[in-house]
């Protein structure tokens, strides 16, 4: 293949990556922004979403679209409930102390991951895409489903944006993010908002997983890499800044996709993790965040 089409293919792969990454990182960023909780178990919510998607699709016979539709609704719901339970049973009892919640979410990471190993097993299992038409470009054919992933991610993100800016729940969330003590004083049930946000964050990870699983297969260790990438995105984008998160996700997802095509993916990851560490050290508000007093 010539360089031009090759770059086009790489960009398209990058865009798929970026779309899924943006969803996942949005969840992490939302949880950090509102609750000041760094959720190390976020990758496992993603993994759980993928494993559940496999389970739902394996329940339903007939056209793969039925199973996929079921998974698209069922997997995020269950993952959301798991997250709500984790919030009520663990995080709330720690009073959301930043350092202790990190240690606790590391514990949750192993609990979810190892339970998946126990009940789902060590194999990677494929999920059929809901449809299989391909788009024929002059140089190569491209999976229509991948384009659907991008579109779906954009729609979901617009939904989240509308939820945050156009609804009462969103207003309450933003008020809590801005100043939880004042919010509490104005009668906002901060505890319930936190639980809801943690659930919503996990659901976004699960949605990302359901979308990607027809491309990538479900495996109990699949949470690690997306977790790392979302961390990178959230930190580069500015901790807690949703707009920064989306911009950074597109940037990192695209460049990771493109760089991985041309260079060693390990080298790309080394540079990315190093960059994140240095950004946190020298510019803790992220590259796109604004400095607040």
């Amino acid at each position: 293949m010539d360089f031009g089409p090759y770059l086009l293919l790489a960009s398209m792969e990058g865009a798929v990556q970026a779309a899924v990454l943006a969803l996942m990182a949005l969840g992490l960023s939302l949880v950090f922004g509102v609750m000041r909780v760094v959720n190390i178990a976020h990758g496992e919510f993603f993994m759980l979403g993928a494993v559940l998607a496999w389970w739902f699709t394996s329940l339903v016979g007939g056209h793969p679209a039925f199973g996929f539709a079921l998974a698209l609704i069922g997997a995020p719901l269950i993952v959301g409930l798991v997250a709500v339970a984790a919030d009520l049973l663990v995080l709330k009892r720690l009073d959301y102390d930043p350092e202790r919640t990190i240690v606790a979410t590391i514990g949750l990471l192993y609990i979810i991951q190892q339970l998946a190993l126990e009940f789902y097993g060590p194999d990677a299992r494929p999920v059929a895409a809901p449809f299989s038409w391909r788009i024929d470009l002059p140089w190569f054919g491209y999976s229509g489903y991948k384009l659907f992933v991008i579109a779906a991610a954009v729609v979901i993100m617009l939904g989240v944006w509308a939820l945050l800016t156009r609804t009462r729940i969103g207003l309450v969330m933003r008020a809590t993010q801005f100043d939880s003590e004042t919010a509490q004083a104005f009668g906002i049930p901060v505890g319930r908002v936190y639980t809801m946000v943690f659930g919503l964050g996990a659901m976004l990870a699960a949605l990302a997983a359901v979308l990607i699983v027809p491309i990538q297969q479900a495996h109990y260790l699949m949470g690690g890499d997306p977790l790392l990438l979302s961390f990178i995105v959230v930190i580069i984008g500015g901790l807690g800044s949703l707009r920064g998160t989306v911009v950074a996700a597109v940037l990192i997802g695209m460049s990771d996709g493109i760089i991985s095509v041309f260079f060693s993916p390990t080298l790309a990851k080394i540079l990315a993790t190093l960059l994140v560490a240095l950004v946190l050290v020298y510019r803790p508000t992220g590259l796109f965040g604004t400095r607040t007093a």
Binding site: V90, R100, G107, L108, Y110, I111, I112, Q114, L115, E118
Partner: peptide, 21 residues
């Protein structure tokens, strides 16, 4: 008993932070 032995580590971390810091 199981290959999911890291489950113990996870449970221990959560219980320790909750009940015996």
């Amino acid at each position: 008993f199981t290959s999911a032995y890291m489950l113990i580590a996870g449970v221990a971390l959560v219980l320790l932070t909750l009940f015996a810091p």
